[in-house]
Design a protein around this nucleic acid. Structure first.
Length: 791
DNA sequence: GAGCATCGGGG
DNA sequence: GTGTACGATGCTC
């Protein structure tokens, strides 16, 4: 009998001799890759007439047991139907669908095993096992006993990769790069002289693919990572390998990567976790960036960028070898960025794996609602609760159309305010769910009919709903666990700053914050319309009460949205506001808390009405460290010219720091004059717009489309996804006809009037309106002729 | 402005 | 693999 300390990383099963066998791939703490095999039985639940159910049982069923289970708050006799093979489960379920309510028939077998055995991937286990004869050629053991141990697998071996291809029909892969700890490599099949040691040459695309297979196998990573590798790199490699009839058997069971079908395909390897950084960043992290390109994400998380290369030069460089080195460097750098992103995000990913209990491959591809769901599924057995089915048919359709009232927004009166204090409810919705015990199973219980407080719905959103005060609900307990776990981590973090702990608390917060959305999500198993609208009703009630209390005490409320409140102290002192918050906190139930978020010497609030999508935050504040916080001004985010963005920021800075609207106005006038005199560089006027489809498919001639069309005529290769960088030049005709690529412009070419009227003025006009100025005041001198046409 | 369709990432 | 995404944005009526 061997004793092992083992981190399970990827769990699958295979049918061997008519029996399902669990395979857990992973690494010992000493670093050896192993497979642990175990035996388990597939099953599902049927609730209904037991005799009728048992009559339908056929030879695929090994046996049945009757067990008392909780079905949405009620204890029922459930028949556990244990089948010979996982594939028998859906068949048996279909057979029983007229007879009984079948549950948990779509819980995947490998995940079922992890849940029932309480095994969490990336976590250390003490294992007793016997050597096992394994057809896959890998060292394997048969599990005899397993118990959890202390360590978490944090130092996983990551290998990042990236490919480059040409853009033609039947385009070959021309190079790939790999990047790991102390490892970097670019392989290409065009020879050229180079001193770069990491560049390796092969003789053909087929050899390149073989070399890819070889290098990945040699490296033995725990994680293979790419950027959009689910949708591009892996499918591309597999397709080219197929062309040459090559096998990319890099999985630990000697199988090839399996590419999922459908629109949103993903690539799975056995035993190696394939992390597509793009998917995790987009689905889970929800980074606040303009787009999710590798460049934007690397910029936001690493303060690093992709290399700048001109892809138009690639076909030529590939033909001659001249300048190809630059593309190799570019290729390697993409892998490096991906490696660093993956390393940086690993603590978040691992923590999510540990909370939710699902392998890393799946975690990285789940939406937040699915993470919540699997966290609940994993914990359902501890509450003896049966997992509800996903909605189907009419139920699904009904859910899709249901609407309910959302959060409260207190519209600010536009203006400049001084001595602003900001308070907000810490995790408002999660704390409401936990404090008011909001769960489908606790709703309108019979035991509290006469005693429990009703959810504070307003007249326009009627409802008689209460939640049990005697028994903790499943959902509310589970969110409570997350909140407590996070508070414990935050407590430790007060003593020591630790990025690892920070990643953990962040993952916990993300998951807790997703519960409200989950309860209202149409496809959720634990969907609960009345729970979701009860949460927003409580939210509105709490913020209303806080607003009222501040007003009663003599503070002026400027703005409030969902969970936050901005007040000016006026004649009162800052301490009075803090005292009031303290008093409010004493009256709040459970873990609810109104937090002091900060003091802002001044702030500008702009009217919310007339903005693009309803009640979006739109304000600028300056904090006590003279740092400016800008929220919601559209130019900050969209594809405006640098000059417009700069002017907006500078205007806000002058107003907030000096409170001098006259000075801000003078500044804008000065800039307008500079623009007119062509004293600014052309790069200040460059507008960037991405082509989202082939040029010929555009009906309109938007400026960037017009530019792209002209570039094509000039012989450039233009493909969807390219960012067109252009400047509006002066002259006659439409904007489109006057848009030109930046490179073809001089500092004299830009159309001063266009930039003043359509970029600079609009970027600040809303701000100046707050101070009683109009468009005329901004651009009066010299623009008189033009503007007179408009007024 | 509601409802439907497409797109995202990648070279 | 005991499976099939989702949320934002643009376009059309």
């Amino acid at each position: 009998m061997a004793k092992l300390r083992f981190y399970p990383m990827d769990i699958t099963y295979k049918v061997i001799n008519g029996e399902p066998v669990i395979h857990m791939y992973g690494r010992t703490v000493e670093g050896e890759q192993l497979c642990i095999v175990d035996h388990y039985e597939p099953y599902f639940w049927a609730v209904g007439d037991i005799k009728a159910i048992e009559k339908q049982i056929d030879e695929t069923v090994a046996r049945t047991e009757v067990v008392k289970k909780d079905l949405n708050g009620e204890i029922v006799d459930a028949v556990k139907i244990i089948t010979m093979l996982p594939e028998h489960v859906p068949k048996m379920k279909d057979k029983l669908k007229e007879t009984a309510l079948c549950l948990e028939a779509d819980i995947l077998f490998a995940r079922r095993y992890l849940i029932d055995k309480e095994i969490i991937p990336c976590q250390e286990y003490e294992i007793e096992a016997e050597p096992y004869e394994f057809s896959e050629g890998m060292k394997a053991f048969e599990l005899k006993s397993i118990k959890p141990a202390e360590r978490i697998y944090e130092n996983q071996k990551i290998l990042a990769f990236d490919i480059e291809t040409l853009e033609q029909e039947d385009a070959p892969i021309i190079m790939f790069s790999l990047y790991g700890k102390d490892f970097q490599k670019v392989v290409t099949w065009k020879h050229f002289p180079t001193k770069e040691k990491y560049i390796e040459f092969v003789n053909s695309e087929a050899d390149l693919i073989k070399r890819f297979r070889e290098l990945v196998k040699e490296h033995q990573p725990d994680i293979i990572t790419g950027y959009f590798s689910d949708g591009f790199d892996f499918p591309y490699i597999m397709e080219r390998a197929k062309k040459y009839k090559l096998s990319i058997d890099i999985s630990l069971d000697k199988s090839q990567p399996v590419i999922g079908r459908g629109e949103n395909k993903s690539t799975k390897l056995t035993g190696i976790n394939h992390v597509d950084v793009y998917k995790f960043v987009r689905n889970i992290l929800r980074l606040d960036v303009d787009d999710y390109t590798l460049n934007s994400v690397a910029e936001a998380l690493l303060k690093d960028r992709k290399h700048d290369v001109d892809f138009e030069k690639l076909p030529d460089a590939w033909k001659t070898g001249d300048g190809l080195e630059k593309f190799c460097q570019y290729n390697l750098h993409d892998s490096k960025l991906t490696y660093e992103l993956c390393s940086k995000l690993l603590p978040n990913i691992v923590e999510m794996v540990r909370i939710v209990g699902v392998p890393m491959y799946d975690i990285c591809r789940m939406a937040l609602s699915q993470l919540v769901e699997w966290y609940l599924i994993r914990n359902a057995p501890k509450f003896n609760t049966l997992v509800p089915n996903r909605p189907a048919g009419d139920e699904f359709k009904t859910r899709l159309t249901r609407k309910y009232k959302g959060a409260f927004v207190f519209e600010p009166k536009p203006g400049l305010y001084n001595n602003i204090m900001l308070f907000d409810f810490r995790s408002l919705y999660p704390s409401i769910i936990a404090s008011h015990n909001i769960s489908p199973s606790t709703m309108n219980c019979s035991c509290c009919r006469d005693t429990a407080e009703r959810v504070p719905f307003e007249k326009d959103e009627p409802g008689k709903i209460w939640f049990c005060t005697n028994k903790k609900g499943f959902i509310s307990s589970m969110i409570g666990d997350l909140i407590e776990r996070r508070m414990r981590i935050k407590e430790i973090m007060k003593k020591e700053k630790n990025p690892l702990l920070d990643a953990r608390q962040y993952s916990l917060k993300l998951l807790a914050n997703s519960f409200y959305g989950y309860l209202g999500f149409y496809a959720a198993r634990w969907y609960c319309y009345d729970c979701a609208r009860s949460i927003t009703a409580y939210g509105r009630d709490y913020i209303h009460k806080v607003i009222k209390q501040f007003e009663t005490e003599g503070f002026k409320v400027i703005y409030s949205d969902t969970d936050s409140i901005f007040v000016t102290t006026g004649k009162k002192k800052a301490k009075d506001a803090q005292d009031l918050a303290h008093k409010i906190n004493k009256s709040l139930p459970g873990i609810m808390e109104l937090e002091y978020e900060g003091n802002f010497p001044s702030g500008i609030f702009v009217s919310l009405k007339g903005t693009e999508s309803g009640a979006k935050k739109k304000y600028a504040l300056i904090d006590e460290n003279d740092e400016i916080v800008i929220k919601g001004f559209e130019t900050v985010r969209s594809n405006w010219s640098p000059v417009a963005k700069d002017v907006q920021k500078k205007v806000l800075t002058i107003l907030l720091k000096e409170g001098d609207a006259e000075k801000a106005l003078k500044y804008v006038k000065k800039i307008i004059e500079n623009i007119r005199k062509h004293e600014l560089g052309k790069e200040e006027f460059e507008i960037r717009t991405q082509l989202t489809k082939p040029v010929e498919e555009y009906e309109s001639t938007a400026p960037h489309v017009a530019v792209a069309k002209r570039l094509i005529k000039e012989g450039h290769e233009i493909v969807p996804g390219m960012v067109i960088k252009y400047i509006i030049t002066s002259g006659k005709g439409t904007i489109g006809s006057r848009a030109r690529v930046t490179e073809q412009c001089t500092n004299e070419d830009y159309d001063a009037d266009y930039y003043i009227e359509n970029q600079v003025v609009p970027s600040v006009i809303k701000i100046f309106e707050v101070f009683g100025y109009s468009e005329n005041d901004l651009a009066e001198k010299g623009a008189q002729d033009k503007l007179s046409k408009f007024f």
